[in-house]
Structures are given as structure tokens and as C-alpha cells.
């Protein structure tokens, strides 16, 4: 990416993000968010993360599968995001060191 492209892309992302931050306040000033829209947005925010994660995890291979499994297990047990992240990374790194 050229520096100009990079700057433009980052500014555009920043603008879109700001629009979501101010958007709720602007919309509420006009119309109440309907339960349907609320439900859609709620499922959308989780789904986008799932869609982001699944294909690369599947295609990266066993190191990623192990990392995800360990992070998920640690997260369900401890609910501590950072600890789970580090454990998952350690498991994946360990697999790569041995494989």
C-alpha cells in the first residue's frame, strides 16, 4: 500500500467508526430503534466476528486449531480474556516448535 492509500483507508475507517459512535444518538433524536433492528444489530456484531475467524482458522491448520481450542477452553473456565489468549498462543507456538 502506498502511504497515501494507507492514510486514506485509515481515515475512512475512522470516519465509519465515528459514525457508529454518534449514530445512535442522532437516530434516537428522531426515531426509536425498533426491536427488530436491535435484534439484527445484536446478531450482526457476533456474526461478523465468526465470519472473520472461521475461514482463516480452518485454513491455517493444526496450530491454529489447537490455539483456538485451548483459548476457548480457558475462556469458558476462567472468563479471563488475556490469560486465555496467552495460553492459546503458547499452545500454538508449542505445536509449531514440535511439529
Amino acid at each position: 500500500m502506498s502511504p497515501l492509500q494507507t492514510i486514506l483507508a485509515i481515515l475512512a475507517i475512522g470516519l465509519v467508526t465515528y459514525a457508529t459512535r454518534i449514530g445512535g444518538i442522532l437516530i434516537m433524536a428522531r426515531i426509536p430503534v425498533s426491536p427488530r433492528i436491535e435484534a439484527f444489530l445484536r446478531y450482526l456484531s457476533g456474526s461478523v466476528l465468526v465470519a472473520l475467524v472461521v475461514p482463516p482458522v480452518i485454513h491455517t491448520g493444526p496450530a491454529a486449531w489447537l490455539g483456538v481450542a485451548v483459548t476457548l477452553a480457558a475462556m469458558l473456565r476462567t472468563r479471563h480474556a488475556l490469560l486465555s489468549l496467552v495460553l492459546g498462543m503458547a499452545a500454538a507456538a508449542g505445536y509449531r516448535a514440535l511439529a
Partner: peptide
């Protein structure tokens, strides 16, 4: 980016 941040709309509301 919009989809990931769409929750902000609800938070602001």
C-alpha cells in the same frame, strides 16, 4: 468495520 462497530449505535442509543 461498520459491522464490527455497529454495536456502538445501540450503545449510543
Amino acid at each position: 468495520v461498520f459491522a464490527v462497530n455497529a454495536r456502538h449505535i445501540l450503545m449510543g442509543a
